[in-house]
């Protein structure tokens, strides 16, 4: 009589998969919470310049975006740099109204903290950016953020 049992003929037990849905749900909730859905379709070219001294934009809910650049559909809209507010092309004169609307849609206590993020294509001329900045000044939206890509300082030197 042998002391050791042989495993011969015995099938390996199947893995219990009953907790699989729980694991998947956990992952699912993580992605659901972290997902930010794109609200606007950007219609201008967005090749951001690089910078090394960047700060993170905090509190995304308090940021309004202004997109400036050459239209992607340059055949239709021409190659001049255009300003995009929400989903439409706009003129410089429309900026104060846009700022006012953005302020209106936030809590009263948060309005002072509103940041305007300028997402400007690197090839744009400063003229239009300066115009937008002047309008922002006039409408008292003084906190701005020049959106850039982050690179290390050594890389910037070529």
């Amino acid at each position: 009589m042998s002391r050791f049992k042989t495993n011969k003929g015995k099938e390996s037990p199947g893995i219990n998969t009953s907790s699989l849905p729980d694991i998947i749900f956990m992952l699912l909730f993580f992605f659901m919470v972290t997902t930010v859905m794109r609200e606007v379709t950007v219609m201008v070219k967005q090749n951001m310049p690089s910078a090394s001294e960047v700060q993170k934009l905090e509190r995304k809910s308090l940021v309004s975006f202004i997109y400036i650049g050459e239209p992607k559909e340059s055949k239709k809209y021409g190659t001049n740099a255009r300003i995009q507010l929400n989903d439409v092309f706009a003129k410089v004169e429309d900026v104060p109204l846009f700022v006012a609307r953005e302020k209106e849609s936030r809590d009263e206590a948060d309005r002072k903290l509103l940041t305007t993020s300028l997402k400007v294509d690197g090839d744009t001329k400063m003229g239009v950016v300066t115009d937008v900045k002047q309008e922002l000044r006039k409408s008292n939206a003084l906190k701005i953020n020049y959106s850039t890509k982050k690179v290390s300082a050594d890389k910037l030197k070529r």
Partner: peptide
């Protein structure tokens, strides 16, 4: 999901 974090140079415009 897009995990892009917005970064940039923050400046304050003069009043």
């Amino acid at each position: 999901t897009t995990m892009d974090i917005d970064t940039g140079i923050t400046r304050k415009l003069p009043p």
